[in-house]
Design a protein around this nucleic acid. Structure first.
Lengths: 225, 225
DNA sequence: ACCGTTAACTTAACGGCGACAACCTGAGGG
DNA sequence: CCCTCAGGTTGTCGCCGTTAAGTTAACGGT
């Protein structure tokens, strides 16, 4: 009865268990599968968490064989990051809409900070993946974009004379503080989150911005007049 | 000629490739292996990064069979976290020595903040594992200890009248800021770190503490007098 | 001196994973 | 009608974490 070595012969065949059987894409539309993979990986991420997003599971969900995924993504991580990037665009839009509604740069800084924190808390899994996972080209791209958004506002504050000193260093310190506010929460179960999330976000943003102001005063006093 | 299933027959035997052949421990000293495993996992972590610390690699490094690891650790994560906990104790010691040297509570808060950041940057891999990995009993224990250290100091500041409002919320905001200062750096290559790390740590601590002060003033104004 | 008990390990195997090389197939243009 | 090549598939490899079940040697008791 002991069958000796016991490999399971093969992966699940395409569409064996679930996922409607896919029709092959037309000649010029190979990218169709790519979109379906991203979407499937997204739902899988929400339903089963990061570990649930295996190449095999994603392939099966769209009704395709496992290696087909590699026709569109170099590896698992790139698929995962692509899923996340889609939602990060949303943050960029929020940032832009804020500066359209605000004139005072320091208020803008505060509001963008709040937006950053709320965004992270709205998409904990996706935030965590690109902001605390292993770095790739995609993560750097996103990180740079965020940094520039904030740096831009800090620069405006500096121009207006409300902040002083090294704009890059100041921005980095603010970024760090905001990132911490997000990541401290998302790496613990939501059950332990504070009751009033908007209040938390506002407080953390206040701490970051007012802290930056204090910091810039300290540097101002040290290096100038 | 195709042999059908192709399993690799077995793991590496104990001590096949490297690691001096271990002598079996005496009756009451089973814990000896445990210590050796922790040490081996530690070096492996430093040499090969987190992914290099596989159960098989650790077992081989001490010259023992793979499943023996499970005699002392429930799973891979617990081994990893145990490795990290050893070094986190150091932070506790630094915190205590700081309060022994300081009388002004706000200065103490600042110095403890600096200590926290510098500690994280001194042990990036170990910090990351317990502070941004999946939560376990070990991580919670460490997180709670840190939180209490800071909360204690914040409380002293509140007693001295230099901070006001909800001590727990204030501490949480500070923790978040400090954690962010550490994690923002450790998740990117050291080549991209700022040149002056002590300065960075001091700035981030200043931002956190002064930000907290500003925050507590805001709350004070809102709810009282 | 023997012997049962049990701590401290080992061998063997399971099931799953990411990744790759090599093959197949059917729609579209000539 | 047949040829081509984008859009897939089959079959494996070599890892991984983890578990079940067996083996060996130190000790306590008689």
């Amino acid at each position: 009865m002991t069958k000796g070595p016991g490999r399971t012969t093969a992966d699940g065949r395409a569409g064996t268990t679930e996922g409607r059987r896919r029709s092959r894409a037309k000649r010029g539309h190979g990218g169709r599968l790519r979109d379906e993979l991203i979407e499937a990986a997204g739902t899988l991420l929400d339903d089963a968490g990061e570990d649930g997003v295996t190449i095999r599971a994603v392939a099966q969900a769209v009704g395709v064989s496992t290696p087909s995924v590699y026709l569109h993504f170099d590896n698992r991580l790139e698929l995962l990051h692509t899923v996340c990037l889609g939602v990060w665009d949303e943050l960029g839009r929020r940032m832009l809409s804020i500066s359209a509604q605000t004139t005072d740069p320091f208020t803008e800084l505060h509001q963008r900070s709040v937006a950053y924190i709320r965004f992270g808390l709205d998409h904990p899994l996706r935030y965590r993946l690109v902001a605390t996972g292993p770095a790739t080209a995609a993560t750097e791209q996103v990180a740079d974009a965020c940094f520039r958004f904030l740096r831009e506002t800090v620069q405006r504050c500096a121009d207006a004379g409300v902040l002083h000193g090294d704009v890059t260093a100041l921005t980095r310190a603010i970024c760090a503080s905001l990132h911490g506010a997000v990541s401290l929460l998302i790496l613990q179960p939501t059950s332990k989150w504070p009751d009033d999330i908007p209040q938390y976000a506002d407080d953390a943003a206040t701490l970051a911005c007012q802290g930056a102001a204090a910091l810039s005063r300290a540097h101002h006093g040290r290096y100038e007049t």
